[in-house]
Structure formats: C-alpha cells, structure tokens
Design a protein around this nucleic acid. Structure first.
Length: 199
DNA sequence: TCTGCGATAATA
DNA sequence: ATTATCGCAGAC
C-alpha cells in the first residue's frame, strides 16, 4: 500500500527509477510538499542525463558536490550556483547513473504567507516560485536538504499525486541557462501556466 | 513589458 | 574562466 498524506499518494521509488527524460514530463502537475504547510504544483522541469549530457553536473563523473546524484533514485539533489542560489533536483534512474530532473517552477498551492516571508521581493504570487532558485527560496530548500529522501519523506519534503494527470500537451523546449547541448529539448512545462519561468 | 548587465563564490 | 540565476536599471 502506497504511503499517503491527506489522501494524496506519495510518489513511490519506482516512479523515479527510470530515465530522467521520462520522469521530467511525468512530474508535471505533481505536488511538492514541505513540512510546514507550504506546497506547490510542479509546472516546469528539466532532465539532466549524466554521462551522455555535457550540460549535466555529473557529466565528468562523481565529485563531492554531485555525489547525491549518483545515489538511489527518489533522493533530492540540492546544489549551489552563481554564488548565491540553491536549486533542487530529483535523482532518477538506477544508482550510479547520475541522472535527475531539475525542478524549475511551481504554481503555489498552500502556505503562500510563509513563501512571501521568504521572498519579500515577490510582488505577485506568480513571482514566488517561477524559477529554480525562486522555488527553493519560497519552499525553504537549501544545502542542508541535499540527499534527503523524497519517498520516505523523512527529510521534510515529498512529492505527491492528487489525481491531476500530467498535461495532455506538455511543451518540450531547449533547457534554460545551459551553453552545451542547449538544443536538446529536455525542458518541459505546462502550456499556459503563468508560473512557468519563461514564455 | 522587455532587454542588458552586475552580483557573488564554488567548481574544475 | 565558467556557471542548471535573479533582480535592478533604463528604454519603450
């Protein structure tokens, strides 16, 4: 029996144990849930594909920074970038593959007041979680969360399915902010959603 | 609303 | 030197 919270099913490890290019579109419309009531629907994702992907952190093999990506699927890989931002991924595939999905945008669902307290710069609700570093700020994710288990949910975060299917017509496009393999259409988003980071 | 650019530091 | 970004300033 799958674990549930509030009648919503926590995504099982098998959901993540496959190619990141399959997981990324499947994560659209799932819900990232935090421990303190904050939650948001995932509306934009990007797949990173390890040894075959020059844009992936894991392209050149295991290091201290990317070690979590080489661990079991269903864990959260959190990294620091541009000298000031945190971004979070779900680890995918088999242990040792080094593949995962970057969470790029959420549609805020609950705990908006707490999100606002963490993102005073946001003037509108759609500026709360519309970007990979914005959503970590709003949800309270940082380096201390690197390696937590999203399936066990014991690290304060999990991803649940409330029955909303992924969009029938997800948009695939090139990934944002990458210089190598920029043409690979491994970014997916929910068409028309105002929380997507770029139009 | 759109575009260009500076901040800021770990990684390789 | 580069980077899986954000937010400000200035133009329109």
């Amino acid at each position: 029996m799958a674990a549930r919270i509030d009648g919503r099913k926590i995504l099982p490890r098998a959901f993540f144990r496959r190619d990141s290019r399959a997981v990324a579109p499947a994560l659209l419309n799932k819900i990232l849930v935090g421990a303190d009531g904050r939650s948001g629907r995932i509306v934009e994702t990007e797949a990173y594909c390890g040894a075959i992907d020059p844009a992936a952190h894991t392209y050149r093999g295991k290091t201290a920074r990317n070690a979590t990506m080489f661990g079991p699927p269903g864990k959260m890989y959190v990294y620091f970038t541009y000298g000031m931002h945190w971004c979070c991924n779900t680890v995918c595939g088999e242990e040792g593959e080094g593949i995962g999905v970057l969470l790029r945008a959420l549609a805020p669902l609950s705990g908006l007041e707490i999100m606002r307290a963490h993102r005073p710069k946001a003037r509108r609700d759609r500026e709360l979680c519309s970007g990979p570093a914005r959503l970590t700020q709003a949800m309270g994710i940082s380096g201390v969360h690197d390696g937590i288990d999203l399936v066990a949910g014991d690290g304060g975060f999990c991803i649940v399915d409330d029955g909303t299917p992924p969009p029938r017509n997800p948009v695939a496009s090139g990934r944002i902010g990458v210089s190598r393999a920029a043409e690979a259409p491994w970014r997916w988003y929910v068409p028309g959603d105002t929380n997507v980071s770029r139009r």
